Amino acid sequence: MKRRADILLVDGYNIIGAWPELNQLKEHHQLEDARDRLLDMLADYQGYTGMEVYVIFDAHQVPGRGATYKQHKLTVMFTKEKETADECIERLCHELYSRRYNIYVATSDLVEQHVAFGQGALRLSARELLNEVGHCRAMIRKKVKEDIHSNKRNTVDEIIHVDVWSKLEQMRRGEK
């Protein structure tokens, strides 16, 4: 039997407000920088864990149809007019749970945690997610250090065929 895929739904602005580094950026009128930093951190987390990550930002007071796009491998969503991030997360929980995914919702909004739990999702508080992201970053740094100290290099010459290597070398030297 195939294992259920893991999906993480993140209430973007809730996490920004809860994580000290991001909240400090927000408080200094750098909300866009806080969003970008959150997305960078979650992209590393996604790369390490293999989870599919959706980051939902509340845009219910902004006119329009909302927007969804990919950044790194994250799915970034801005809600449509008159839809809150909580409502969007609830809708996604329902849709994704019926497709047999393991769904985790990252928010410190207690009401949202209970609603998501009622939809079959598992909750992850902002602090728990921050701890997991920090742990993954530490594991990535450790792996990089190990690779550096063991002189393990990921070089192209290990995988390139000798004919291609010769042509590249000729091009580098300016030969035809």
Rank of each mutant, 00 (worst) to 15 (best):
M1R: 12
M1I: 12
M1H: 14
I7Y: 03
L9Y: 02
D11T: 09
I15Y: 00
I15C: 01
I16F: 02
I16W: 00
G17W: 07
G17T: 07
L22N: 01
E27L: 14
H28N: 15
H29T: 05
Q30Y: 00
A34D: 05
L42K: 03
L42P: 02
Y45R: 02
Y45I: 04
M51R: 14
V53F: 08
V55K: 00
I56M: 07
F57K: 08
F57G: 04
D58M: 05
V62H: 08
P63G: 02
P63D: 11
G66E: 07
K70Q: 12
K70T: 15
K73L: 04
V76E: 01
E81H: 14
E81N: 10
E83Y: 15
D86N: 09
E87I: 04
R91Y: 12
L92I: 08
H94C: 05
L96T: 01
Y97H: 14
I103R: 00
T107Y: 07
T107Q: 03
S108V: 03
V111F: 07
Q113P: 06
H114S: 12
V115G: 09
V115H: 05
F117E: 13
Q119D: 06
G120M: 05
L122T: 14
L124F: 00
A126Y: 03
R127E: 08
L130F: 11
N131Y: 08
E132D: 10
V133W: 01
G134P: 01
H135E: 12
C136S: 11
I140Q: 04
I140H: 00
K142P: 01
K143G: 01
K145C: 02
H149E: 15
S150A: 11
R153W: 02
T155I: 13
E158R: 10
I159V: 15
H161K: 11
D163Y: 06
W165A: 13
K167M: 08
L168A: 11
E169Q: 07
M171I: 14
R173A: 12
R173S: 06
G174F: 11
